[in-house]
Amino acid sequence: MSLREVGAFLMMCFVWGFHFVVIKTIVGEVPPMFYAAVRMGLVAILMSPFLRWRSGEMPKIFLGGLCLGVFNYALMFSGVKLAPASAAAIALELHVPFATILAVIFLGDRPGWRRILGIAIAFVGVALIATAGETSADPDTRIGLGVGLVAAAAFSEAMGAVTVKRSSGFTPYQLLAWFSVIGTVGLSVMTAIFETGQAAAYEAVDKRLFFGAIIYSAVAASIIGHATYYWLLQRLPVSVVAPSVLLTTIIAVFFSVLLLGDPFGPRMAVGGLMTLAGVGFVLLRNAKKQPNTGVLSEPPG
């Protein structure tokens, strides 16, 4: 990589990794699905020039939008509210094993025993984290449920990635535009049904914190992060870009422990290392084989 590419790579990983700290901070102040809906609304406004209608492809885009713009964020943000940000960041890595499994079912991929072993190690690692039992200063922490919700978000993202892989005719920015529109509508409905006290929470929250988090999530994590990722993919081999998800998680864990005081005992450390090792092995094997699976999708921004 050139120096500029290295800088872009590190910046992207930092933006996505630090995003977990931002999410954890703001969902402690306002309902998570309400925040996700507002965030996606801003992305939809900014990305609206990229909206394009393509006949015959919209059902797949709608399904992909539900997976990648609605359910994954509703589950992930709710999970981050309940689990330490560091645990959530590690659990979200399961989108790679899930996508590999779905690729076998829907896209005819044939994983060898090495990728199967990597998938198994990753799942065992997340299971260790979910049952770690580390205590937290936050009384709302329920690590098992939170990690489970984030794992479900990872599955939703993987399902969306496989769905989108079967569509055609859309650029990445057109997909992001549609997913943000679908996400805004879907998350608005979900927060109205499943959450209460949105208006009161908004009135009480520090507006600089709220809008700063919204801008960071929408502009930095979603638009700048994705733009950088696609720019790197155009210039570098997939095998070089793929490990960005691992560095993103390491950065997320580091800042979560440093700034949020996340508990990180031996069981959490072992589970995290197992998950990263398993996911890393799957990523590298996927990149080597260059399968038509879409499993090298970027971490959710």
Rank of each mutant, 00 (worst) to 15 (best):
V80W: 01
S86E: 07
A85F: 00
L102W: 01
A120H: 04
A137E: 13
I105Y: 06
V104Y: 03
D138G: 04
G108M: 04
P97A: 11
W113T: 12
L92A: 14
R110N: 12
W113E: 12
G112D: 15
S86G: 15
S78N: 13
A89S: 15
H95S: 01
I119E: 06
A85V: 01
H95L: 01
V126G: 01
P111L: 15
T100M: 14
G108V: 04
S86N: 11
D109E: 15
I90E: 03
F98I: 06
E93P: 02
T135H: 13
K81R: 15
I116S: 09
S136K: 08
R110V: 12
D140C: 00
T100L: 14
L75F: 12
A83F: 05
I105M: 13
L102H: 00
P139S: 09
G108F: 05
F77D: 07
S136F: 05
A122V: 05
A87Y: 13
R114E: 14
N72D: 06
A74W: 09
S78D: 11
I129H: 01
L117P: 04
A137C: 04
I90S: 08
V70P: 10
G69Y: 06
I101G: 03
A130E: 00
A91P: 09
L75D: 00
D140E: 15
I116R: 11
F106D: 02
A120P: 01
L75H: 03
N72S: 14
L92N: 12
V80G: 02
G118C: 06
G108H: 02
W113N: 10
L117W: 08
V70I: 13
F123H: 06
V124W: 05
L117M: 14
A130C: 05
L117E: 03
T131A: 10
I105N: 06
F77H: 12
D140Q: 14
P111K: 07
L92D: 08
F71W: 14
A130T: 04
A103F: 07
Y73I: 07
V80D: 00
G79L: 09
I105K: 04
F98V: 07
R110L: 11
A122Q: 00
Y73A: 02
I105D: 08
L92T: 05
V70F: 11
T141W: 03
L82G: 03
E93R: 09
G125V: 00
L102G: 05
A132R: 07
L107I: 06
A74C: 09
R110T: 12
A132G: 07
V126E: 01
A130Y: 02
